[in-house]
């Protein structure tokens, strides 16, 4: 519907948010729409269109969700687990962007259904490079699931969940 793809960034650190916005600006000539939420609960509110997020013109469903792992109220993992159970949202592309490279965190992320797991680089130039790669791959190269297919699969999911 909207011409520009929306990226939803769930990040509690305001410094990281500013640096991300800056890096995104450097990384891509394409004007992506960046929406930011500050914790897990807010992410769920946004995605399920609650309260102010009901206005999908202002807050469109994102094409890509960038999740921090450790956030207040609800962690990135909790958001992802919730997301994969939502018929309308379960195929949303989720990329973790975190400072943890713990094997256990990586395992849990993939187990919950993450599409990708990236460690935040300390060096700003590396951050720019990383965001460029992510946007090129997930927003341009990667084939997106048509909306009709999502609707069909959500029908199926409803039926099967009703049976179980």
């Amino acid at each position: 519907m909207s011409r520009t793809a929306t990226i939803l960034l769930a990040e509690d650190d305001p410094n990281d948010v500013i640096l991300f916005q800056r890096a995104l600006g450097r990384a891509s000539s394409n004007a992506y729409s960046l929406k930011v939420v500050r914790d897990g609960e807010e992410a769920i509110s946004y995605l399920s269109g609650q309260s102010i997020y009901a206005d999908r013109n202002l807050y469109p469903l994102p094409t890509l969700l960038l999740l921090d792992l450790k956030m207040p109220r609800k962690s990135g993992l909790e958001v992802l687990s919730w997301l994969r159970k939502q018929p309308q949202l379960r195929y949303l592309i989720v990329v973790f962007l975190t400072s943890s490279n713990s094997a256990e965190d990586i395992r849990l992320a993939y187990e919950a259904g993450a599409n990708s797991y990236l460690v935040k680089p300390v060096e700003f130039t590396e951050m720019v490079e990383l965001i460029r790669n992510v946007s090129v791959y997930w927003l341009e190269l990667n084939e997106k699931l048509p909306l009709s297919a999502i609707a069909a699969s959500s029908e199926g999911a409803r039926t099967s969940s009703g049976n179980s």
């Binding site: 650190d13 410094n15 990281d16 500013i18 640096l19 800056r22 792992l69 450790k70 975190t98 400072s99 943890s100 490279n101 713990s102 965190d105 935040k120 300390v122 060096e123 700003f124 130039t125 951050m127």
Partner: peptide, 24 residues
């Protein structure tokens, strides 16, 4: 283990900011 990773996570965040904003 948890502690060290939390250090990694928590200590590196301000570093990232220092670095990022110095560059900016």
């Amino acid at each position: 283990e948890t502690f060290t990773y939390s250090i990694a996570h928590d200590l590196r965040a301000p570093l990232r900011a220092m670095l990022g904003f110095s560059r900016a």
